[in-house]
Structures are given as structure tokens and as C-alpha cells.
Design a protein around this nucleic acid. Sequence first.
RNA 1: GGAGACGUCGCAUAGUUCGGCCUAGUGCACCACCCUGCUAAGGUGGAGUACCCUUUAUUGGGUACCGUGGGUUCAAAUCCCACCGUCUCCGCCA
Length: 422
Amino acid sequence: MIDPVLLREHPDLIKRSQAARGDSVDVVDEAIAADAARRAAIGAYESLRAEQNAFGKTVAKAPKDEKQALVAEAQSLAARVKEAQADATAAEEGFDAVIRRIANVIVEGVPAGGEDDFTVLREVGDIPSFDFEPRDHLELGELLGAIDMHRGAKVSGSRFYFLRGIGARLELAIMNLGLDLAMRNGFVPLITPTLVRPETMAGTGFLGEHSDEVYYLPADDLYLTGTSEVALAGYHADEILDLEKGPVRYAGWSTCYRREAGSGGKDTRGIIRVHQFNKLEMFVYTLPENAEAEHQRLLGWQEQMLQSLGLSYRVIDTAAGDLGSSAARKFDVEAWVPTQGAFRELTSTSNCTTYQARRLDTRYRTESGKTAPVATLNGTLATTRWIVALLETHQRADGSVVVPEALRPYLGGLEIIEPLGV
RNA sequence: GGAGACGUCGCAUAGUUCGGCCUAGUGCACCACCCUGCUAAGGUGGAGUACCCUUUAUUGGGUACCGUGGGUUCAAAUCCCACCGUCUCCGCCA
């Protein structure tokens, strides 16, 4: 949710942001009107209610013979209070519904426009070249006995898979590499629930535009989370955090579930786009004035991960229209996937400023002792998908794959992954 | 799955029998000041969250909040209903 004070005092700022996103600009004026209506309705209700409270005391103290007449009077007052209260509630709900349609105000510098209007900030590492025809990750995965899509489909359907042998170990190794990096930088590891209540799911906004993407269990009224961000954001909901000693950082480890409803036919081969995968997610609560610097740090750690795995990548500054509603800025790190001849997203990091925290009611105490919403940020540190770029980038002509040095300690010192047949 | 107990202002607890004297008492912890020649004790005062109006020096006033949401009533921490959570016992169990 955006800041209602900003709405009142600087609506032009919000309008500019909405325009850059390609979202409705008129909704801002609607929200201002709804805010005025809400405040008027609340004022009317509260003064009536104060009258009723005072009157209640006279009734209580009145001698018995006068009580009956007073009660009759109080009844009509009570009816008016009830009416005013209903009006106030309706006005608040109306305001809430409108203001929720306004997305977070983008950070200065975010490119305007849609999906294709991103800015490339930098490319790092040479595009790998091969003196043989490179195999794609699935062919390699099968050769190495690492990925089994057929049996995944047999057991669970399309877009499901088994990671087996070195495949299973590779995933754990990448995740653990990320976890160690996170812990060196003060993150607290957190293995999160992957089934959450509707309130939790709604609190992070995933039931809005992403509701098609979410698995739902009607028998228990629970949702399967598509990222641990959901649980990590909910973790400190309704709390006042102490940020004086610095930001509070969590590394969430969880399985993620996505229906991939709108992506029929896209990336059907291999494990690029699947219904279930594992992910290590950074999540930070920090002071609003430190959010942009923290965002750069999260991006830095992500790049460190890709570099230590020897992957070539580029960093893009996502355009306003392609941001989620709660992100004020988003950087994606995309790794080069040789057989696709393209960069594919491996990580994403969003600065949600105070937008998400305001809805979740996560606050800190300012120097003057007042409370104010914190800023939240999130970013990927490792996922199952990384195996794709890793296998393809480091493959050799015979189908073996060189293990990047940083990963070897996590695989018992293994340097080369050999095909099973050899 | 069955039976029962419980949920109060940071923590602990009183209040719920019989609705109004609860603007929710008390202890601990906390903050300020006072007293005291001192890592003790004592005294006085203060202090929650959200929203609205006013002021805009961070002033003053109001409304709401006793797990959550409904209901009854002139009036609900207190009565009724539903839900959520915690604990105990029984049953079942990858």
C-alpha cells in the first residue's frame, strides 16, 4: 500500500509513477476523493459516538424513575450511531479498495515502459564458445544420470522431474554455497512453511495479479507458496522491529510451487520452467533511507554467486511496467544459456520500499519515538534452474562437465562430472 | 478424529459469578525527577497501538482496541455464536 500522506501531499509524484508503469493515472484522483469521504464519515461517526458515551453515563447514574425516559432517548441515539458507523465502515472499505489499486512509486531512474524496455546495466564474463556442438542441459542431465523428466511426468505430470544422483547433489551444493555466502553476511537461515493461510498470501499481494499462478488446497483453505518471500514477509507481520543494530536479514530456504498457468508451451523442455523447485531467497528488513544501498548489496551478492560458478551474465534494470505492484525497482541477473543463445533469468531482486511493510504492518521506532513502516527487499541467491546454466556452460565434448572450483567443497572435492556410461 | 482447559495494556496477573462505579487494577521490568555518601532501599510522576479533528515545536481534544469476526443491549473484557491459536488427555498415523 502506498503512503496515504504522500497521496494527499504529492499526488503528482504518484501520477508520474503510474504513467511510467502504464497503469491508471485517474485512480490517484479517485483515491484522493475516497480519502476525503472516508475522513468525513469517520468524523461524523466519532462525534456521535462520543455523545452516546456521555449519555450512557447519565443513564447509569439516573434515579430509577427517570431511567425509562432516558433509555427511550438513548435508543434513538443508538440507532443514529449505528447508521453513522455503517457509513464510516463503508467509506473506509471504499478507500482501501481504491488505494490498493495504486502500485508502489518507482525509484528515480527506473526505465518507463513494458517488458522489453529494460536497461542493460552491464554484461559480465565472456560468452562461452565451443569447438563442438554443445548439448542442452536436459541431454547432459540424462547423460549424467542427473535429471529424469520421464519419470517425473509419470509420477506427477508435465513440468515435474526427478533430480537424481549428481543432479540431486548439485542442487544441494549450489544451495549450500549460497547459504554460506549469506551467513558470512549476517543472514539468519530460515526454513519456511510452504503452505500458508489466505491472509498471509493476500498480505504479500500474490492473490492479486498472480492468483492464477498459485496452487490452492480447498479442503484445508491453504495456499502453496511460489516463493519463501511469502512466509518471510509474513514472519514479522504486526510487529515493531528494532533496526538500530542494522538491517534484519533472512535467508529463506524452501520448495516453491507454481502453476505456470499462463505459460503453456513455453520452456517445456527440461527444468527451466517447472511446477516445483527449490530456492534460497534473501529477505531484508531495513530503514527506508537505507533501502537503495541495501538493494545494491543484494545485487552484489547475487553477482558474486554467478561469478563464483563461472557463469556469464548480464544485469538488467527492469522497466516500470514489468515490476510487480509492490516493487519500486527490480534488477534481474540473467545467465547466458549456450544452447538457447540467450540470457535467461537466474535471479531477481526487488526493492519494495515501505509498500509491502505498510500492508503487513511491520514497523520500526523512529528517533522521535513514533512508529513508521520499514522497507523490505528480497532477492534470489540460488535455485534449481541454475543447474541449467551450470551444466551447459561447463560441458566438454565427451559430455562430462567441469565443476567450478567454488562448488567442489560441496561435492566432496569432485572436479569432473562424468557421464554414467563411461 | 474425540473430550476438556485456556487466550486481558512489554512480561506476570486481577476483573468475567450478578453488563453500567473498568477512563481495565496490581506486581515486575522501563523512563524522568527527588531523597539517600552511592552497583541496595525508598518517594513522586510518566509511559501502549491505530485512526480522526486541531496545532504544525513532536499542542490539545476525540474514537477504537481485553485472541479475531459477528450478534444481543440504551450500555459488553463481562452475555450469545462462529473462527483462530495454545495446552492436557484419548484415539489414529508415512
